[in-house]
């Protein structure tokens, strides 16, 4: 007797919808461009996430990025002969009650270069660079706190470190 797989539903954030919409619209404008293929591959990967396939790997905490240690990353690339150019960042929420579906929240689809996808995901989850989830949870108002140096927060979102080696957080 085969084991029944849990039902998985995806919950796209508004930002993720915008990421996909931009890709879709670009593909419509340039039917021969790489965007159409990238869109199809991204949707295929989302389909696999919905089927319960794990991500390419779980994410860990790195001080130069927002803490996404509760998230997974799935690699996406339009060119099978090149390193995947994009990342889908998502996280799973266990059902609150028996019988409810597992929710996989899709947070961002972004470029791998400069960790763009991860910075986008952090921004959408309201997580500044350099703070662990535990630190954020311990603060009641992590963003609005006047005691927090402002430069550190704005700098973390607007100017992600360009010197960060990509292989550290793929």
């Amino acid at each position: 007797m085969s084991e029944r797989r849990p039902v998985i539903r995806i919950l796209p954030t508004a930002g993720l919808k915008q990421d996909l919409q931009a890709l879709h619209d670009a593909a419509l404008k340039k039917p021969q461009g790489p965007e159409g293929r990238l869109l199809r591959v991204a949707l295929n990967e989302l389909g696999r996430i919905q089927q319960g396939v794990p991500g390419t790997h779980p994410l860990g905490y790195m001080p130069s990025y927002p803490d996404l240690s509760d998230c997974e990353t799935t690699y996406v690339g339009a060119d099978p002969n090149a390193k995947p150019s994009h990342r889908i960042v998502w996280r799973e929420r266990a059902p609150q009650r028996p019988g409810e579906p597992v929710i996989r929240e899709i947070i961002a689809l972004g470029e791998r270069a400069n960790g763009q996808a991860y910075h986008m995901a952090g921004q959408r989850l309201g997580r500044p660079v350099g703070f662990t989830l535990a630190e954020l949870a311990a603060q009641r108002q992590p963003i609005a706190s006047p005691s927090r140096p402002r430069q550190r927060l704005t700098g973390s979102f607007d100017t992600p470190s360009m010197n960060e080696p990509d292989h550290q957080f793929e």
């Binding site: 539903r9 995806i10 919950l11 919808k17 919409q21 879709h24 996430i49 919905q50």
Partner: peptide, 13 residues
């Protein structure tokens, strides 16, 4: 409650 990836795709165009 989430959605299916097909529903998400259809909403794009």
């Amino acid at each position: 409650a989430g959605m299916t990836v097909e529903e998400l795709a259809e909403s794009l165009g």
